[in-house]
Design a protein around this nucleic acid. Sequence first.
DNA 1: AATATTATTTAGATTTGTCTAAATTATATT
DNA 2: AATATAATTTAGACAAATCTAAATAATATT
Lengths: 219, 219
Amino acid sequence: MNLTVAEENYIKSIYKLQDGQAVVSTNAIAYDLDTKPASVTDMAKKLKEKKLIDYEKYQGISLTPEGKRIAIQIVRRHRLWECFLVDKLSFSWDEVHEIAEELEHVRSEKLINRLSEFLGNPTTDPHGDPIPDAQGKFSKNKQLVSLDKATARRLEVAGVSDQSSSLLEFLNAKGIKLGTQIDVIERYEFDNSVEIKIRNQSAFTISEQVSKNIMVKIL
Amino acid sequence: MNLTVAEENYIKSIYKLQDGQAVVSTNAIAYDLDTKPASVTDMAKKLKEKKLIDYEKYQGISLTPEGKRIAIQIVRRHRLWECFLVDKLSFSWDEVHEIAEELEHVRSEKLINRLSEFLGNPTTDPHGDPIPDAQGKFSKNKQLVSLDKATARRLEVAGVSDQSSSLLEFLNAKGIKLGTQIDVIERYEFDNSVEIKIRNQSAFTISEQVSKNIMVKIL
DNA sequence: AATATTATTTAGATTTGTCTAAATTATATT
DNA sequence: AATATAATTTAGACAAATCTAAATAATATT
């Protein structure tokens, strides 16, 4: 199956948006890929032709098993490159996404498997997202919860669910990174903000919007 | 200047073919890029529009200073990635070209400069070709000569001028790699073949075609 | 249920990079 | 110099990926 970069981006987007949902809407994909719904319809026909998605007019889009397999390989490539950029080239986690977005389209199984080996076969990327292995299997992770729902006092940052530069920059500025231990000081009901404290720093408050996007492990 | 992958490939090809020549022909570019002369003419108009080449109908093509600057950056990216693949991911030098051909189009100065640093700012790639620095300057190399023209007895392989898989495979099979020391046993005038010997191996003969493409340093 | 709103698709156009076939220009040969 | 051959360009077409505007279908609201 030889896919264009555009086709790979659609597959990846559908995979990301599907997550649980039965189907993904034309509009959602268009928004995610910063394109127009009409373009999504066009591409849907092509991907259906290639048997990578199930698609009936007006009925939404979902990946076929083959489409999902391909999506997972793309995710694998993306996350391994992110590891490389952070671990080997000393990029910070909030600046690797765009570059990995390009590197992920270089298709060579040998390259990716060697890269994985070189990095020590990591199972999570710098954002805490799991990296599927060459067979597409995810190592089952400890259960992660978003910070706004975690009940424990002491938590460890294990990832972020929104990878927009704005959020990553904010976390960077606050000194929150993967593995950072956080103590929850107080939760404010009226706006669901959370006061937290990082070791050796004074406490500060983060909004619900932020806490919803921080994934944590309970310690 | 935002170039497409196709445009970059044309720039790179023109740079490679120009080397000394005043201009490059439409046909030569078409052959090098495995496309048709008509397509080259089409692209020439576009690149002229962008002021990356000098081009007048029927008069051949040459890079402008800006075109050359860009070409050298592409060459830098290509060769650094080749180093990475060989030095870090244990690829052999005859299998890296195609992959580097894709990686070279990922445009991020920061990425390339960090990669260079990570590799120890190498000045030659696994084929012995010089790697320009971030400013586009080549470190002046010891003068290399092709094996068919070298007069000395003892030589060291410093590169190959043709990087086709077929040649690289041949060299690999014969145990000839970068840094290999060669003794010239005999030169046969009638077909310009050369009998050579590698330490601890029995002598064998290589054709003019091969010897022309092996670049050597005199020891 | 009728109507308004939103989502989706179709139709037709555009851009990029390519092609083939025909026309033109340059170069080589007699 | 005339003619043959080779190189190059033009003209017109195509596929991929996109777009806008209009049409249609699904969903929500009154």
